[in-house]
Design a protein around this nucleic acid. Sequence first.
RNA 1: GCCCAGGUGGCGGAAUUGGUAGACGCGCUGGAUUCAAAAUCCAGUUCCGCGAGGAGUGUGGGUUCGAUUCCCACCCUGGGUACCA
Length: 947
Amino acid sequence: MEYNFREIESKWKKFWAENQTFKTEDNSDKPKFYVLDMFPYPSGAGLHVGHPLGYIASDIYARYKRLTGHNVLHPMGYDSFGLPAEQYAIQTGQHPVITTEDNIARYREQLDNVGFSFDWSREVRTSSPEYYKWTQWIFAQLFDCYYDYKTNKAERISKLISTFEQDGNGNVNACADCEVIFTAEDWNTYSPKEKEDILQTYRLAFLADSWVNWCPKLGTVLANDEIINGVSERGGHPVEQKLMRQWSMRIKAYAERLLTGLDTLDWTDSVKDIQRNWIGKSTGCSLFFPLWRGNEGEEITYSQDNIEVFTTRPDTVFGVSFVVLAPEHPLVEEITTAEYKDAVEAYKKAASLKTERDRQSDVKNITGQFTGGYVLHPFTNEKVQIWIGDYVLASYGTGAVMAVPCGDQRDWDFANHFNLEIKNIFENIDISESAYAEKSGKIANSDFLSGLEIKEAMKIAIEEIEKRGLGKGKTNYRLRDAVFSRQRYWGEPFPVYYKNGIPTIIETQHLPIILPEVEKYLPTEDGEPPLGNAKTWAWDTIKNTVVSNELIDNVSVFPLELNTMPGWAGSSWYFLRYMDANNESEFVNKEKADYWKSVDLYIGGSEHATGHLLYARFWNMFLFDQGYISFPEPFQKMINQGMILGRSSFVYRTLEGNTIVTASKKNEYNTIPLHVDISLVDNDKLNIEGFKQWRSDYADAEFILEDDGTYVCGFEVEKMSKSKFNVQTPDELVEKFGADTLRMYEMFLGPIEQAKPWDTKGINGVSNFLRKFWRLFHQGADYAFEITESEPTKDALKTLHKTIQKVTADLERFSFNTGVSNFMIACNELSDQKCNNRQILSDLVVLLSPYAPHICEELWMKLGNEAGSINKATYPKFNEAYLVSDSFSYPISFNGKVRIKVDLPSSMNAKEIEDHVMGMAELNKYLEGKQPKKLIVVPGRIVNIVV
RNA sequence: GCCCAGGUGGCGGAAUUGGUAGACGCGCUGGAUUCAAAAUCCAGUUCCGCGAGGAGUGUGGGUUCGAUUCCCACCCUGGGUACCA
């Protein structure tokens, strides 16, 4: 039989499903291995060829690990809460549950088409109540914990309360926004509401007022990238900054551990660096500049004594020549003198009109305004001017900087622009043209710091600042706490009700709190989130169930939270659920989590570096702190697959009319490019009749063709998208070439981590390879299965073992593209050798099975093995003895350029080789009568003659 | 600006420690087979040159017997980030 991929592939897909071939047990004598893909959001568009790239790679690796004796966990699921289903519901009224189910069914069909070895018995869906019950539970745990810097982990809030009751909060060292210091006596007099307000400033999941991008027209908060030019991306409605009471996550508490934990992970430097930058640690100190209170007899009083600045360069404190506040700084109004009032007001107004984006992009334009106020230099007591300038941000540090023009370019520019003093405190450094920002060299003109190396001076300066009580060593992080509320319908409801304004958690045994039915998915008319439309959305604390809103009496029935959780809630712990996907009493059984531990190989896109990958680490660390799991980091090794780009095709239409010009002649006319559907283009040649049908408005168009009478399209590589008509679905290719070919071709395209254009041109090559591979087992015109049982030849053994060695090494370093090449080489060599030896081919089938599982399963059975058992086969063992050859073809190079080759016995040592080479007559041609200066022999590699 | 990754034929890419640059595949050229096509098979294919030969891994320098690989400077592409004090 000729290679019939359709028959073979549908047969084995059915077999694997019926026999649950890839179901994984949670206990085994074998070592465990956890291979995970980033689970997809099931969008309506279905999969395109870019999506399965990572899944194919992880599937190959999972199958390889099974063959090498591992118990492999390789699950799949759906991140099924999300905006598109909700928007579809708003437009059509169809419940997101239905949209989501339909999309998942389509995804499943597409995934099954490719022949993945997922254990579907562990499938998770973040939108199913059985799953989000535990998302709600984790939220409740976070609510019930705070971060203690003394133990450096999350602790129960009850511990904090007992500390408050005994000692107040004076000695508490926790990550908190609490601004008051209170004693035990104070605490005990507080009302329940006052106590809870304080606790909220400590909890890891907490309510706080935060500034959000609010779009009144859409009734929702928008993320920064949902806003284009100050208006909403969707609809183009105005967006304003609004202070809203929102749930947040105190991820800041974990900033340091999220940073240091990176050192233990086997991730690419680029993703680690993205996270490092995002966390943005900077160390330095805070420093207080006392406010100058005016001349004797005319003292001014201020609401505070000092302006606090944060600096990373305390060593340059003697170079301070002015202080700059953010225009929004709360002290600006007080310190501004009558003389400068109008100018300051005007400046503040101008700054407030600029959007954050304008302020950031307009870097070259230096603006600022003197306030008339002064501070005193903390060491020299000199009067220092206070300016405001919008290069200082209210949201970072203390919203105030000490300006050291000689050491910071922005300060230098500012001083230069406004003619302010530029003191030089660096030894032998010229600062007349620009600031000196290097952290090496010596400090000068700086009292007790003079003569010190900069790094040493930093240390001494902080010590001295602390000793004199002028400030404190301090570490700042750029990382912000994460807003956790969304004004959406299609997300996890919070397990929270409001008992007379106090947020109260619903106990675990009453979870899940199921998303209520609503008539409309839009915000309510008075601006409440969509859940405000629900009629049955109140919590009965006696029956412990959700009841009608009409029953709310604020005695035993209370209103429920109307916001839902963000998309990242469910995806921050799904990798744990796979270990125990159907557990009804725990989010994951501890024993099972202890067996599977962290993910050994995680494959997914690097675009999640500052989102999912950070939040998942945060939640995992928290669950670790609380002893629910025993590993602090969730993903040990990660590979980031590159994006597959589409290859768009273009036709060129003349500006004035109905003429379509071929690519090579487009410049002779005045043309514009038009995207054309890639299904109408084969090898850049346009199917003209198809094009006329596709675009009926061009049915009568005139075509200007190439000289050979064809129409050649232009192309461009861009993102795959429907609107560019360059989407290639895996289904079409599976139909045309088979899943095994698609799998191998996607791998063959190039290194997994690299972005690369999709191009089907080369797929024939892989398809040919599989047919050729099939022919190794099938002889003659009628493709009869025929295998010899004899001893394999030396050449065949050499080919086999070379292939084992290379293919295995390729897998270990995730070089799938060279793996495919090596299979091609093996197949070519064995074809040339006319090898159809059982021993050789059996091993080769096992080797190839991770890449092309269907064809290998079929051949494995034909070789007489039990049906569907190739995943239990033994991985072939490499034996170096078969690779040893008795001669080597030495390249002889002259000054590094290879000129001659000579076959010499492998046993020859360097001296023997040298003697033999020096005796060769061919050398004369290249020596041109001269004597060689030097001769280098690297046995087994090369001979180089220096002339 | 700063940080990270990368730059090799007509195209995708290979070269694990400094040792034969261009594996493998596509495409292209020629041939065999065929009534014809598909499929298959054979030969060729970095560039310049009829050839001997010369040049060649973004550019310029360096180290070395020998550099795609190491060092320095620069250019370009992609990603991240940004008046972060």
